[in-house]
């Protein structure tokens, strides 16, 4: 006689756990994306970011196909067919050339990628540190909480740009170092305080208690139950970190303090260095880079506000 025992798998064929998770998060994403799309403010920011992304992608393609690297290289290129530099916009140089004969549009597009990288590194470092410390400090409380929060007070107290100026004059600071410094300052400072206060409200929810009764260890509760509930807020503060990172880089480059090859701030420094800063007749020397900095900062800030309206229930219209 054949085996008649009924195993669980015969009755229901459950999907594997990761597949359920994936489906759930996809649904949540679709819902949030629909909420985000309702708000033109966030969409405008998103559109600007897309345009900049296209610019970043287009530069290496253009330099390998249409643009001759000898003329169009953002750092070493020079157009010797034009007798006087800076030259105004022309069909060959759509945004003109700077005082060293380099193509402004090429510089602008070349810098976009490194601005994105700077923002991404700073934001990721900030959020990794802030979320972990925020969750741990809120969960354990007591002495750990006190140490991190007093330290955060100290960091928050320090003026950001001033400190960066002092650091970059005294030490050699490049793009990566700057991104990490900004990330550390944000991660140990203001962002931690905000995320910790959110973690305090998560900590007292019933599902945390349920997880503890089910025998979950401290590490499991923090990383599987508290941190996932902090992620939306962390994501929001990533956007704001990107804005402040790009702005700080531009200011430091404008003062000529950073050790980098090319950036939007450095383009304005070059303009100032060659004495065209107040020569608004030669607008292509200062406008493109300044507009790019402003637009990029504004774009990330707008996206941040769009996300804020989704995750902060009190700002919602409903």
């Amino acid at each position: 006689m054949a085996e008649t025992t009924i195993t669980g798998s015969d009755l229901v064929k459950p999907d594997s756990l990761w597949r359920i998770r994936l489906r759930l998060s996809w649904q949540a994403f679709k819902k949030n994306a629909a909420l985000f799309a309702e708000n033109p403010v966030g969409l405008i920011g998103f559109a600007i970011i897309l345009i900049f992304m296209l610019m970043a992608v287009a530069h290496p393609i253009l330099i390998n196909t249409v643009w001759d690297p000898v003329i169009y290289d953002p750092v070493t290129g020079i157009d010797i067919t034009i007798p006087f530099h800076p030259s105004p916009p022309s069909p060959t140089h759509l945004l003109g050339t700077d005082s060293f004969g380099r193509d402004v549009l090429s510089q602008l597009m070349f810098s976009t990628a490194s601005e994105f990288a700077l923002g991404a590194v700073a934001a990721i470092v900030t959020v990794l540190i802030a979320t972990t410390i925020g969750a741990v400090a809120a969960y354990y409380g007591g002495i750990i909480d006190t140490i991190f929060m007093r330290f955060a007070d100290l960091v928050v107290m320090t003026p950001f740009v001033t400190l960066l100026i002092v650091l970059s004059t005294l030490f050699e600071v490049g793009m990566i170092e700057l991104a990490i410094i900004i990330g550390l300052l944000g991660g140990f400072g203001s962002t931690t305080i905000i995320i910790k206060s959110q973690a305090l409200t998560v900590k007292v929810r019933t599902y945390i208690e349920a997880a503890r009764i089910a025998g979950g260890g401290d590490a499991r509760i923090i990383f599987r139950h508290i941190i996932p509930n902090l992620l939306p807020l962390s994501f929001l503060y990533m956007m704001f970190t990107v804005t402040s990172a790009i702005f700080s880089e531009a200011v430091l480059s404008f003062f000529g303090l950073l050790n980098i090859r090319m950036s939007w701030g450095l383009m304005i420094f070059t303009t100032q260095f060659s004495g065209y800063l107040l020569d608004f007749e030669k607008w292509w020397l200062i406008y493109p880079a300044s507009v790019a900095i402003t637009a990029m900062c504004a774009a990330f800030y707008l996206v941040g506000r769009g996300i804020d309206e989704i995750i902060n229930p009190r700002l919602r219209r409903r």
Binding site: P40, V41, I44, F247, I268, L277, S290, T294, R305
Partner: peptide
Amino acid sequence: YASTIGGVSLYTVFTPWFALIMI
């Protein structure tokens, strides 16, 4: 929307450039 976008652009404007325009 207009004032939010205008406000954000003023808030994130590259300060040296804005000051130069004013001058």
